[in-house]
Every structure is written in structure tokens, then in C-alpha cells.
Amino acid sequence: MHVTPPPPHVTRPVVEPVWWQVFGPGFAALVGLFMLTVVHRFDGRSALQLDLGLSGQSVLLIVLLPYLVATALAVPVGLLLGARFPTAVTVPAIGFLFLGVLLTAFTPGSGLLLAGRALSGLGTGAAAGAAVALILKLRAGRGVVAGVAAASGALALLLAPVVGRLISDALGFRVSQLAAIPFLLVALIVSAVLGLVKLTAANRRVPPHGVPYPPAGFTGGP
């Protein structure tokens, strides 16, 4: 009796990342870096510090340090998982940034402010780690993409206090925080679209069920 053998197990081929995949986590990381320094000023006390009555030591311990520590803790997660699961890392990172921005914007005191800054730091670290992981896996254009990403990050850190001061002086520090929400929504949409594009491209590389790849050197002849 003829027994039909089971179909061969088909595995998805490993797809190397391409430069455009860096846009999702990279843009989210830029927003996070911007939010890191937007509450500070180069020439004196920030609007956040004045409105909440914080001392210089409190700004260091509640505003800056939690952000930096949370970022440092989340970067390894992005580095480990970001290259393989960029969308799965970036979307929660944007969620953390979103919650952190809201808590910081509507904080009545130091407790929620610390939590908001820590959540924003987690999102920034995870997104930055994922972006770096993708860049390290690139086969073409790695140097160019890395240079653009580094320059953009430095520019975000330097411009944020200037932009934050302009917005805060006119509308208050809370508005300077809420101004990040549209950019986070753009980062979320970009990450979701790029994730769908990557999934579609991966599915096209998988042969139909039960049809294995032809062996190497096969030409289709008898």
C-alpha cells in the first residue's frame, strides 16, 4: 500500500535587515532623546523646575537620573531582540514613551514625575537598542546609516532645550511635553507599516506548503 510521506518541514529563511527598517526604532529613539533634555535649560532654571518648585538636586535625582538609569537598563533588551523582532520591541517602547510623556505633562508633584521620566527612559533605551542592533546587522550602508543616526541623536539632544524653552516660555512646560505625542504617533505608524512590509517580504520567501526548495544545482531537466 502506497503511503504518502508527510510534507517536509519548511522553515523561514533568515532575512537580513535593510536600512529602511531602522526608521521605526530610530525615529522613536530620536523622540526619546529629545524628551531627555527638553525639560532642561542651558542658562538657568527650567520652567518645569520653577512650576513644580524643584531644587537643583531634585532635578538631578527626579528628572535626569531616573531617565538615564531606565535608558541604560532597557538598551540591552533592544540590542538582544531588536534585530530579530524590531516591531515587537519598538511598539512597546513607544507605548512606554507615550505613558511617560503623559505622566510628566500632567504630574502634580515629584512622585508621578519620577515615574514618568523612568517610563520614558525605558522606551528610549529599548528603541535605541533596537536601532543599534539593526544597524550592526546591515550588510550595506552600515557606516552611512550609523553616521546619520548618531548625528541625528546628537542634534536632538542639543536642540531640545532650545525648543523646550521656546514652548515653555509661551505655553508652559506641560505643552512642551504634549508636543511629543504627534511625533510618537508617527513613529508608531511607521513601525507598524515597516513591520507589515517585513512580514510580507518574509512570506514571499517561503515556498508553498509541502513544496520544498529545489536542491542546489537543480535546473529542472530530467
Rank of each mutant, 00 (worst) to 15 (best):
G44A: 06
S176G: 15
A126E: 11
I181S: 01
A202C: 01
L65F: 10
P208E: 08
G53Y: 05
T200Q: 14
H9K: 07
A149V: 07
A115Y: 04
V10Q: 09
S55K: 09
Q49I: 01
F218M: 02
G121M: 06
P66R: 02
V39S: 13
G109T: 03
P66Y: 03
A29F: 06
A192K: 03
G78V: 01
K137A: 13
G147L: 10
S120A: 15
A150I: 15
T90L: 11
G32S: 08
L185D: 01
V197G: 00
T11V: 10
V206R: 08
F106G: 01
A88F: 10
T71R: 05
S191R: 07
L79M: 14
L158V: 13
L199Y: 07
P86M: 11
G32K: 05
P76N: 08
A105Y: 10
L112W: 13
L50G: 09
A28Y: 02
F34V: 05
P212S: 13
G217F: 03
A201N: 06
A156W: 00
R142H: 02
R45H: 12
G100P: 12
F183W: 13
D51T: 12
V190W: 04
P25R: 07
L114C: 03
P222M: 09
A140Y: 08
V148W: 03
K137C: 11
M1P: 11
S168L: 02
A150N: 12
T104V: 12
L102H: 04
A131V: 08
A160H: 02
P5S: 14
A187V: 02
Y213F: 05
F42E: 11
L64H: 04
L178T: 10
E16D: 03
S58T: 12
T104S: 15
A201I: 00
S176M: 15
Q21D: 11
T87S: 14
V39F: 06
L99C: 14
H2I: 08
A128E: 07
T200H: 13
P25V: 01
P7N: 08
V162F: 09
F98W: 15
L122F: 13
G116Q: 06
V162E: 05
P7Y: 00
H9T: 02
A150M: 13
V15Y: 00
V89P: 11
P182F: 04
I181A: 03
G56V: 05
P7Q: 03
I135P: 08
A202R: 15
P8H: 05
P86C: 08
L178I: 12
F98A: 11
L54D: 04
V39L: 08
R165A: 12
L158Y: 09
D51P: 00
R45E: 15
A105S: 14
T90R: 09
F183T: 10
D43L: 00
V39C: 01
A128S: 15
G100L: 07
P222C: 00
T37P: 08
A70Y: 09
A216S: 11
L178F: 05
V22P: 05
L185G: 10
V148M: 13
P92H: 10
A140S: 13
W20E: 05
H209P: 04
Y67A: 11
L81M: 14
A216H: 10
R204L: 12
A192G: 06
L134S: 02
A170W: 07
V144M: 14
I94L: 08
Q49M: 12
A187M: 03
F42T: 11
M35A: 04
K137V: 00
